[in-house]
Every structure is written in structure tokens, then in C-alpha cells.
Amino acid sequence: MSALTDDSIPVTPRAMRDEMIVFAAMAVLLGLVPLTGIYPFFVMQALCFALLACAFNLLIGYGGLLSFGHAMFLGTAGYCSAHALKVWGVSPEIGIVVGIAGAAVLSVVTGFISIRRQGIYFSMITLALSQLLYFIYLQAPFTHGEDGIQGIPQGYLFGIFNLARPTVLYYVVLAGFLGGFLLIYRTINSPFGEVLKAIRENEPRAISLGYKTDQYKLLAFILSGTIAGFAGSLKVFVAQNASLTDVHWTMSGEIVLMTLVGGLGTIFGPVVGAFVIIAMQQYLAGFGQWVTVIQGVIFVACVLTFRRGVIGEIAHYFRRSL
């Protein structure tokens, strides 16, 4: 099977330095957003999806596994957090932990099942599993079916930070995003990440070198699902609801699209892609179903002419890894 990223550039100290510079620039720029008067809700939403896309990218870009069901982690963590916050009345930090735990348990179970097949079958299995979960949530009483869980209290994080204030919430979400991003970055550049890349490039060879590739893939799947769950928990505080849209296959498709637009297997690509797609949805909201058509056109255009994505093209042009 041919690799998804055609020209992998080896990780050198210079590449690491480039990446840290870009990361610092990104953090500063995002930190300045509240001063600019940009609608913070939009940026917070984009940050949640950016983290989600980064988690998804860990699996496809570095493990070569295309999950078509990543919305299930977003939705599951969202439901768990929302339920804990609203019905049990726990504090925000406990709510986030409950959401992450829910996604982690789900990713262990679904990972164990889906990792048994590779390539195209893996994608179909994850899609089918997320559809199974969708129907379960549709009928389960605690999700309130079509209505979803609404009016979730935001509360005080660690008893100090008032999440009902948009600026405070913004910095909390930003901190969560940057933390999650660094965790993924660290994973990619760890020995574990290197083995993962080796499996992506040539699985039989990795097996012959003595690596238990299934365990590596399962661990990557669990990590990806859990971080995706973290994004889902953060999103609950932003949107103040948890609904079926977050579990639907269209959401899984959007996650794939964000990563594809930004660049599969690039570090910053999913972030750019998430902002592009969320911005597009905001500005084109009045066009109804044409948004779906435009998303389809972007999919087709990306696959046919623009497979490296925005960041992938830039990185390729400068011969850097981004």
C-alpha cells in the first residue's frame, strides 16, 4: 500500500525548531484574539474542532488508519460531560474528566474491534460502529433523543474561573487546545510515534522487526479517541448542549474534510483545516443545503488536485516539515 504522505521529511533539530516557532506564533496569535473583537464563540468552536481534527490526524497521518467514525468520541464525551454537569451537578473539571473517561472506554472497546481489519475495512467498521452508537443514543433515555441535553451550567473551573464569562472560557478552551496539541506533538516525535510511522510505511517489515503492530495501532486509536473526547468535553462548555448531530456520520465526514483540507499527516494542517471549514460554515450558513454540496466539491477537489492540503503544500514548497 502506498503511503499517504509521499515525501516524509526526517525530523531534524532544525525541523523541531521550525515547528516550535510556528507553535509559539500560533499560541500568541490565538491568545490575542479576545483583544481584536473577533466573535470569541466562533474561535472557541474552531479550537474544539481543531483539537478533534488533530486527534483524528494522529491516527490517519501517522498510523495510516482512516477512521470514519470519530464523531462517536466527540458525541460520547459530550453526552457524558453534559450528563455529569447537569444531572449530577459536578464541577467543570470533574465534568471534563467524566467526558474523557467515557471517550477512553469507548475507544478501548471500538479500537479492539476495528483494529482487527485494515485499510478500507477499518474505515467501514469505524463508520458502522459510530452508526450503531448513533442509534443507541437516539433511543437511550439520558440523551433526550432528538432534543439533546440543553442548558448545561458552565460553573467555576477549579472553583476560581467563571466559565460563564466569554473571555475566561476562551482562555480555558485555548489552554485545553494547546495542551492537547502538545500532547499529540510529543506523541508523534516519541519512539512510539516513530514505530507508528514505520507501521504506516510498511507493516510487514515492522512486524518482522519484532514490533507487535496491533498493540501499537490499538494504543494510537485509544489515544486519538481519548483526545477527541477531550475536545468533545470542551465543546460542551462552548455550545452548552450535547446533541445527536455530534454523533452523526456527517460530523465524522467533516472531521475527515478538515484534516484533508489542512493536510493529512502534517502537524498544523488540521488546525488550519478546522478554521477554514468552520469559517465556511459560518459565512455560508444562509445557503442551506448548498453547504453540503460545497463540502463535497472541496472533498473532490482536494483528492484530485490538492492531496497535500494547505499546510502540506507550504511545507513541500519550503522543503520543511510543518
Binding site: 470514519f68 454540496v293 472541496i298 483528492v303 492531496r307
Partner: peptide
Amino acid sequence: DHLYGLLLTFGIALI
């Protein structure tokens, strides 16, 4: 890679 076929036809389905 097979996955590009899946992504392309998914886009066609959306359109």
C-alpha cells in the same frame, strides 16, 4: 492509496 477512493466517492455522494 485505497483511502483516496473512499474520500473522493464520499465527496461525490455529498454533492
